[in-house]
């Protein structure tokens, strides 16, 4: 029996799920073997969360309620980790400025 999970999270990052945030998002998604998808509405359309081309095509600006779903091994962990990343604002504050 294959696992599945689904959650929603509000995008608070200023540029939304684009550019640098989308790089981090897809990189994290790729660390899971489960099939992961995102959508801007509960009824889709769903985009492959491991493809930056598709994630950019979703055009999710700030204030979007992002739907994330996963199917397969580690589906729950995948959704949980991605939700956390969006909640942490993609860790932008921490590494945006080179300190050295």
């Amino acid at each position: 029996m294959s696992a599945s999970a689904e959650a929603t999270v509000l995008i608070t990052h200023e540029v939304g799920l684009h550019a640098r945030p989308s790089v981090k998002f897809t990189k994290l998604a790729k660390t899971f073997s489960a099939e992961v998808e995102v959508a801007l509405a509960a009824n889709g359309p769903w985009f492959d969360a491991k493809s930056i081309v598709k994630v950019m095509a979703a055009k999710a600006p700030k204030g979007t309620l992002l739907h994330i779903r996963a199917k397969g091994d580690g589906a729950g962990e995948a959704v949980g980790a991605l939700v956390e990343l969006v909640r942490r604002d993609f860790d932008e504050g921490a590494d945006h400025v080179r300190t050295a």
Partner: peptide, 21 residues
């Protein structure tokens, strides 16, 4: 690269690594 330039470059790398592109 500095952080501004690195952001642009990392985005381009991720695009080139994507089969959808």
């Amino acid at each position: 690269a500095d952080s501004e330039a690195a952001g642009i470059l990392e985005f381009q790398i991720a695009m080139l690594e994507d089969d959808a592109l």
